[in-house]
Simulated assay, not measured.
Amino acid sequence: MKTLKILVGLALIIAVSAFAIDKVGVHNTNVDGYGIGDVANDFELKNVDGAMVSLADYKDAKGYIVIFTCNHCPYSVAYEDRINALDNMFKTKGYPVIAINPNNPKLYPEDSFDNMKVRAKEKGFTFPYIFDDGQKIYPQYGAKKTPHVYVLEKTKTGNVVRYIGAIDNNYKDAAAANEKYVEDAVNALLEGNKVPLEVTKAIGCSIKA
């Protein structure tokens, strides 16, 4: 009986320790996706122009602004012009936008690949708009909403997650947004500084899988 109590106690200590490490985000490997400091896997997904896109294609990139977004969600629609602006602002500085539609078109036909092509043309997207066919990539990242942003920094050890969350603090009105989380994060990285706010709450529609 005494031996059993000792074993139970040891099991609890191990479980608590593992939870603590996970919460700190040290090489987070939990099922909820990446944490700050984790190395993100590359992917190869089809763009609206028919070409396959991966992060490795961007040889001169310093990092990436990966945004999970879609056609039908009003939050995503509200941010389309701002996503274009982020790409125009940072692509030439080494941080291009890569937009990924994670939704299952069987549930939301508006988010089909054909409709993605139409939307990209209508809005004049300057960035790749790629389809997460089979919904395999967004769970790796842990994306929950559209839009949901992951800023990655290219390093010798891989593409390290430096920011996760929302684009800014006002989806309704771009002019009223006074906290520009993604912009601040990328500017900090370009200056060689730590991202001032690493995680924010993504506001948007739930991903339809």
Rank of each mutant, 00 (worst) to 15 (best):
N84W: 03
Y129N: 07
Y108W: 04
I21R: 08
F43R: 04
L189T: 00
D114M: 02
F19G: 12
N41Y: 02
D133T: 13
V24P: 02
L197E: 15
D57E: 10
G134L: 01
R82V: 11
I207R: 00
G124T: 05
G37C: 09
G9A: 09
L107R: 01
G134S: 02
G158E: 08
P196D: 12
V77Q: 13
N47D: 14
I65M: 01
S76T: 07
A143D: 01
Y150S: 02
C70N: 14
D184V: 04
V160D: 06
V160E: 10
Y34W: 09
A185H: 14
Y75A: 06
A188K: 11
D173I: 03
G63V: 03
P196Q: 11
E122R: 10
A61T: 03
I13A: 14
I98K: 05
F125S: 04
E179I: 14
L45R: 07
F68A: 06
N101H: 07
K5G: 01
A175Y: 11
Y171S: 15
D22P: 05
T200H: 07
A176F: 07
C205D: 10
T3S: 14
D81A: 14
F125H: 08
V118H: 13
F43S: 02
D132R: 08
L197Y: 13
D81H: 10
D184Y: 11
K201H: 06
T3L: 15
G192K: 03
P109T: 03
P105V: 08
C70E: 14
P139I: 15
E179K: 15
T92A: 14
K91V: 05
C73L: 12
Y34T: 00
G204K: 12
Q135E: 15
K201V: 08
N193P: 02
Y138I: 07
I21D: 00
N169Y: 14
F68G: 03
A18V: 07
A120L: 06
P96I: 04
I36Y: 08
K144W: 12
K154M: 12
I65D: 07
S206C: 05
A202Q: 02
K62W: 13
H27S: 13
V149N: 05
E198V: 09
I36V: 09
V31D: 14
A11T: 11
H27Y: 12
N28Q: 13
S54W: 05
A11H: 02
L4M: 13
A56Y: 02
E80V: 10
H148N: 02
T126V: 06
V77H: 04
D132S: 09
I83L: 01
S206H: 04
L10H: 04
V26C: 00
V77L: 06
K145G: 08
F90Q: 05
D133A: 15
A40N: 06
V97F: 00
V39H: 01
Y108K: 10
A209W: 02
P196F: 09
A174W: 04
T155I: 13
F131V: 01
Y79V: 01
I98E: 07
V186D: 15
K154V: 12
P147G: 02
P128M: 11
V31C: 03
D57T: 06
A40C: 09
K93T: 00
A209R: 02
